[in-house]
């Protein structure tokens, strides 16, 4: 399983805009780079990222090979109610990983 770093506050006031930062370990092989043997290394990237907040999509992104290795994404969300944020990265070769964090809204 790929390592991830997800940073968001554990608690927030209702209506507060919170910043979320995510990093995931992934080579993001572009599909344009020749390997040591001169043959182009097949593309292997994360193509999609989604953030669900209590099962509703609040942010998503389509990634291209121009995104750097170990993709970093930072975005924001309005703290509406306490619940679960689910982060999913999916991509080439059946790659899919979901991580969840809970947020308490006061």
């Amino acid at each position: 399983m790929a390592r991830t770093l997800i940073n968001l506050p554990r608690t927030a006031r209702r209506g507060e805009v919170i910043e979320i930062r995510t990093l995931i370990q992934h080579v993001m092989e572009t599909g344009y780079r020749p390997g040591a043997d001169g043959v182009v290394v097949p593309r292997d990237i994360v193509t999609r990222f989604t953030c669900l907040y209590n099962n509703e999509e609040v942010f998503s992104a389509e990634l291209a090979p121009a995104i750097a290795a170990n993709p970093f994404l930072s975005f924001s969300v309005v703290a509406a109610e306490s619940g679960i944020l689910a982060f999913t990265w999916s991509g080439d070769n059946g790659f899919e990983q979901t991580e969840t964090r809970s947020l308490t809204v006061t």
Binding site: R3, T4, L5, L23, Q25
Partner: peptide, 15 residues
Amino acid sequence: DTANPGMLWVEEGRA
């Protein structure tokens, strides 16, 4: 630390 990709390896190290 929330932006440093090296921390991904630290996480791996913790596991």
